[in-house]
Nucleic acid binder design. Structure first.
Lengths: 232, 232
DNA sequence: CCTGGAACTTGATCTAGATCAAGCGCTCTC
DNA sequence: GAGAGCGCTTGATCTAGATCAAGTTCCAGG
């Protein structure tokens, strides 16, 4: 455990309110590991042995069935994943692989459950974290059930734009293959969707996208805080 | 509050471990109401004033955007809904309406949050409930991203079959319009999907469906515990 | 009984998106 | 600097599912 990371992790909502003793117990049991890109961390169906915290890099959560694969979510620093499986002592529902070289904190599930049982503040922080995760997936699900592929892309661009400081320019955070899967379409279709958005001022140059007509794009996207707002 | 309902509610995982005092405080503040079918209980975007428990009947959770509507889930006795919004003191992400005449327990959000703050056992029970809800939505989301409409229907039939005691006969719990929306398709398409399943031994007669070739149907459906198993 | 309407089915057509198949333009290696 | 290979685009076709438009069945109310 690199001591410079500790304060960062301690500051997470999930850990900030727990008592010092529980926290240091957790951290003493934990491993901080660096993984290369495209490294499989867990597979769906495995029993939940660790809670993961992405400290640096990024991790892709994906799922497989019937020979198909879908990206379910991307986790960026500093974020946790598969908390629910750890608490229920159940199997993972999603697989995880690094999307880039990443530093990941691995906390043994047993220790997490002990801290949950002994530290009331931690138990309450977990509720808030789980409630956020739950609402996040509900929003994703609404996004897919209520919008077309082009609408999903338009809203995603607007979200990245807001995240990156409203400069009129957006840097796509993942390669287009991954972005396509995350948005629930094929790479070919993502290309075509970008084409469809051209009349709305969307100019693509590799991973850099320029938005020249935000009003027009918003008119098409019809962003909805009950789907797009991460904190709501 | 009808006293005969109290033991039933107390037995729910969510309430069974909380201390007697917190529980009676909650119940004293709560209203048990009977609503007719098709009654709108809450609308997405409203602030979360109550936690709901369906005691009898059934409640449909749905969402709207861009002029489209989708059924997100059905809640049957005894189940709760919109716990996450109540705990976060946030707005509802989904609307709710009764699917039939229903008795519903409404617990003021403020009281739920107080009990959460004061009763450690309740806080921990909430974690388990939220983790279950979270994993439920993840499974729904996987169902939609990884399966075709016919596969979703086939798996749904197998699930109802298992729930109803493996008798070779299944009673559809909702009308076909609602079932179609829940499965993410139009009513017309649900009819056609039933037609597609005829060669797999699926015989439809109104709301009663007979399954004469379970192996064949399973071969097509490829049920997956990481999507279909409710408790996993 | 008749009648109106809702729930569902069936058929015809349309469309979003997938799939298949080249092709282009990088970067990386040699 | 040539070639291999990957990421991406573009075009042609195909398919799942939506939409539109009649029917049919069945039940409720007069």
């Amino acid at each position: 455990m690199r001591t410079t990371d500790l304060p960062e992790i301690r500051k997470l909502d999930l850990f900030s309110s727990m008592n010092e003793n529980s926290f240091s117990n957790l951290m003493n049991a934990a491993y901080l590991q660096t993984f290369p890109a495209e490294m499989q961390l867990i597979a769906e169906g495995d029993t939940a042995d660790f809670l993961f915290v992405v400290v640096e890099g990024c991790v892709e959560l994906h799922a497989n069935a019937n020979g198909r694969e879908a990206t379910m979510a991307m986790v960026r620093p500093i974020g946790t994943f598969i908390l629910a499986a750890v608490l229920k002592d159940a199997v993972y529902l999603m697989s995880a692989r690094t999307g880039a070289k990443s530093r990941v904190l691995m906390i043994p599930a047993q220790n997490v459950r002990e801290a949950f049982a002994n530290d009331d503040a931690f138990a309450r922080a977990i509720v808030q974290e789980l409630a956020n995760c739950y609402r996040g997936v509900v929003k994703d699900h609404k996004d897919h059930k209520l919008r077309t592929a082009v609408e999903r892309l338009a809203n995603r661009l607007l979200k990245y734009h807001a995240d990156q400081g409203e400069t009129g320019e957006v840097q796509l955070p993942y390669d287009k293959r991954t972005l396509a899967s995350l948005l629930g379409m094929t790479p070919e279709n993502l290309s075509r969707a970008f084409g469809t958005l051209k009349p709305y001022g969307v100019v693509v140059d590799g991973a850099r996208v320029t938005l020249t007509d935000l009003d027009g794009l918003s008119g098409l996207a019809k962003p909805n805080p009950l789907i797009d707002e991460r904190k709501a």
